[in-house]
């Protein structure tokens, strides 16, 4: 049986096909990620190309409204950029940071959790205490303080130039304990199983047992929390950018677009804020819905018991 057939006959795919919410949210997710990465091709304008931007076009409402312009479907922002194109590019930035941050926090958390869970003893107590300490402070506070410190340490200009990798690191640092705890808990469950003992008996070294034997068996819960974590990371990024501690407006993410539009809400230009906001909500919502479904399917208690 090849991989495709196995996948096709699996319980996983079977329940996916029967769940309209899962199908819809997955489709929308793929669609949004797709158009955001194809933004240079599908977007009507390039917001990074200053030669196409005309300041005279600034703050135009969407084209179905009275003063709207047919060139700009969703209107323009304060700098005269086409809002739809800017949003697509912004979504791409948000997606890159969201996924990058989750990969980084998973990397940190898996190493810590695996080491703590497998080695146990003092190392376990030490590592988990650090995780507990950080866990007791909300991730958003950690992320905000970390980015504030980075911004002052690097200076605003360099921070803006390096914003993308720095945000990945900041959000990664603020969320790793969740992975560490999850991985450690499932390592503790796996550690004393027979296959690990067998591997030990044939004389494999610890590193090999940890990474090649135990790690793959702890991946299910990691996968389950990863979907929700991507949504969380995208929202953290938006929050940081909204506070002016994230992506600069010259390289906007959805959060910085909302922030930029906020001042103009008072003069009635609601679209600059509302459309990026709706896109952000839609994007996080589909990830959360898909993550909920994934958790239900992957949780063996629910379908075996």
């Amino acid at each position: 049986m090849n991989t495709w057939q196995r996948f096709n006959n699996s319980y996983f795919f079977y329940s996916f096909k029967r769940d309209p919410v899962a199908i819809a949210s997955f489709t929308i997710f793929i669609f949004l990620v797709g158009i955001s990465f194809l933004a240079p091709v599908v977007a009507p304008f390039n917001p990074y190309d200053t030669s196409t931007i005309d300041i005279m076009d600034s703050e135009l409402p969407p084209n179905w409204m009275e003063e709207g312009d047919d060139r700009f479907i969703l209107g323009t922002d304060i700098q005269g950029r086409d809002l739809l194109s800017t949003m697509l590019y912004g979504l791409r930035t948000s997606v890159i940071i969201g996924i990058g941050a989750v990969l980084f926090q998973a990397f940190l958390g898996i190493i810590v959790g695996l080491t703590a869970g497998y080695l146990g003893g003092k190392i376990d107590a030490f590592l988990m205490r650090i995780a507990d300490i950080q866990f007791s402070i909300p991730y958003l506070i950690v992320a905000i303080i970390a980015s504030a410190v980075f911004q002052i340490a690097f200076g605003v200009d360099r921070f803006e130039a390096l914003a993308l990798p720095l945000l990945v690191i900041i959000i990664g640092i603020s969320e790793w304990p969740k992975y560490a705890r999850t991985v450690r808990a499932s390592v503790l469950g796996e550690r004393n199983k027979e296959y690990v003992e067998a591997a030990r008996v044939i004389g494999l070294n610890r590193r090999l047992i940890m990474y090649r034997h135990i790690l793959p068996n702890t991946m299910t819960p990691v996968l389950v929390i990863s979907t929700i974590q991507v949504a969380q990371a995208v929202m953290s990024e938006a929050a940081l950018s909204f506070l002016g501690l994230g992506m600069p407006i010259t390289k906007p993410s959805l959060g910085s677009l909302i922030n930029a539009g906020f001042e103009y809400v008072f003069s009635g230009s609601w679209w600059i804020t509302l459309f990026p906001g709706i896109l952000l909500v839609l994007f996080t919502l589909v990830i959360i819905l898909f993550g909920d479904w994934l958790r239900d399917v992957m949780n063996p208690k629910l379908y075996k018991g």
């Binding site: 949504a231 938006a238 909204f242 909302i258 809400v265 906001g277 952000l280 909500v281 919502l285 819905l289």
Partner: peptide
């Protein structure tokens, strides 16, 4: 409340202000 989980607080605030 399902949708509400995905709405960031600053967006709610801006909509209320508007």
């Amino acid at each position: 409340s399902t949708i509400g989980v995905a709405v960031p607080v600053f967006l709610t605030a801006i909509i209320l202000i508007y």
